[in-house]
Computed example of a mutant assay.
Amino acid sequence: MKEAFENSLDAQTFFSINCRGNLVRLDSPKIMGILNLTPDSFSDGGKFVDEKSALVHAEKMVKEGAAIIDIGAQSTRPHAEYLNAKEEILRIGNLISKIKLEFPETLISLDTFYAEVVKFGFEEGIDIVNDISGGNYDHKMFETVGETKLPYILMHVNPTYESMHEKLIEEDILLNINKYFSGKVLELKRFGVNDIILDPGFGFGKTVAQNHQTMDELEFVGFGKMPLLVGISRKSFIYKPLGKSPLEIIEETQRLHFKALQKGAKILRVHDVAETFRTIRDFEDSGL
């Protein structure tokens, strides 16, 4: 039975997402470059808070190989500053439309858990909604995404903002993730959301062992029915056990990226775009 299931995964390797009428194929893995507009993100807080530096960094990531720029106005690290929707919108300003004007072929995803910010982003030109809350932090999120018809990144996370980083899961982590996704996907489809990308939520409410188990069993997340996004860049489950800082684990991260690609990841959400581009090239050259 396991062999038949793995064969079914192989048969569903190729995915595409509809971004405002543009059919984006994911047969070749895509890089999502992180653009944090926050003063308090754990590894790059304060670097891109003004429009000029944010645009320069976006250009750098596009030139290095990012197909998607993920814009976030609110940090979700432990004990981060909490912003309401209006504060997020003020922090984003005109950046989305300016990046779209400068790089029309680049997809823009918006990292927010507010429906109001999604509506704003849609008017500004975003192509993808990246909601770390799985619709848990704003009950209007799924309805709003359904209205926009944008692809939606569904992340596995604890049910409340306050418990986001608490280690609460005692059952098998893969079983927990797949039960969560099964329910959420049904709910999203009821609201007309058809393009769904699954994010296992590395680093969110999981022990070091649970994070590594999720990576080891990544090919079984979502049963191979939807494209997978992996976001492990500068995560503490990598650097803390090694006694290193978030900026000292590029080599270890790229090894895990290669493993994620072997197991079917289609989008890698990263800070280090050039290094990840080389990893994808090495993976494709390997023929695995």
Rank of each mutant, 00 (worst) to 15 (best):
K2P: 00
A4Q: 13
F15I: 00
S16T: 08
L26A: 07
I31K: 04
T38L: 10
G45C: 08
G45R: 04
V49N: 06
V49A: 05
E59V: 00
L83I: 05
N84W: 09
E87I: 11
I89L: 07
L90G: 04
L90K: 15
K100E: 06
E102P: 00
E105G: 02
L110H: 08
D111W: 08
D111C: 10
D111H: 10
F113K: 01
V117R: 09
F122Q: 06
E123Y: 13
G125H: 01
G146R: 10
I153T: 11
M155A: 10
P159A: 05
P159T: 06
S163G: 03
I173M: 04
F181L: 06
G192C: 03
N194Q: 15
F204C: 00
V208N: 12
Q210D: 04
Q213A: 12
G222V: 09
G224C: 10
V230N: 10
R234T: 04
L242W: 07
K244M: 12
E248I: 03
I249L: 04
I249F: 02
T253H: 01
R255C: 13
R255H: 12
L256I: 11
F258L: 13
K263Q: 13
G264K: 01
L268S: 10
D272T: 08
T279Y: 01
S286Q: 09
